[in-house]
């Protein structure tokens, strides 16, 4: 289970890193979204992978850590808002600069 979880995070990060290095704003925005998914899962997994455990300390029994879920919630809100902002800004850049290259450079250059 741990292996699968870390593989998922690794694949998300790899795809995200590849996409943010692209030269067009659309793949960059998708890459940022994938990076933030990877980060959210990573934060979630830092509470350890347990199933069916109560969320608060109850003696010697295994417990699920509720704090990473609170952290993830904050990170999701911020990440979601920022992805929306990047999309809006990319559209603005497309309008102002005349193309969707991240440096605003067109094919003619």
């Amino acid at each position: 289970m741990e292996m699968l979880a870390s593989l998922v995070v690794a694949v998300l990060f790899a795809c995200g890193a590849y996409l943010v290095l692209r030269a067009r704003t659309f793949p960059v925005a998708i890459g940022l979204a994938l990076l933030s998914y990877g980060v959210n899962l990573f934060l979630f997994f830092t509470g350890r992978l347990v199933t069916g455990a109560p969320p608060l300390a109850g003696g010697a029994a295994a417990t699920a850590d509720p704090l990473p879920q609170a952290l993830v919630l904050t990170a999701i809100v911020i990440g979601f808002g920022m992805t929306a902002f990047v999309v809006a800004l990319s559209l603005r850049a497309r309008g102002e600069l005349g193309n969707d290259h991240v440096d605003g450079a067109g094919e003619e250059r």
Binding site: G16, V20, L35, A93, V102
Partner: peptide
Amino acid sequence: RVRAGLHYVVLNLIGSSLFLV
């Protein structure tokens, strides 16, 4: 401003991801 701002925003979002990691 839009061109410089786009770079700034994207870089800082990547930075924020690393911070969370």
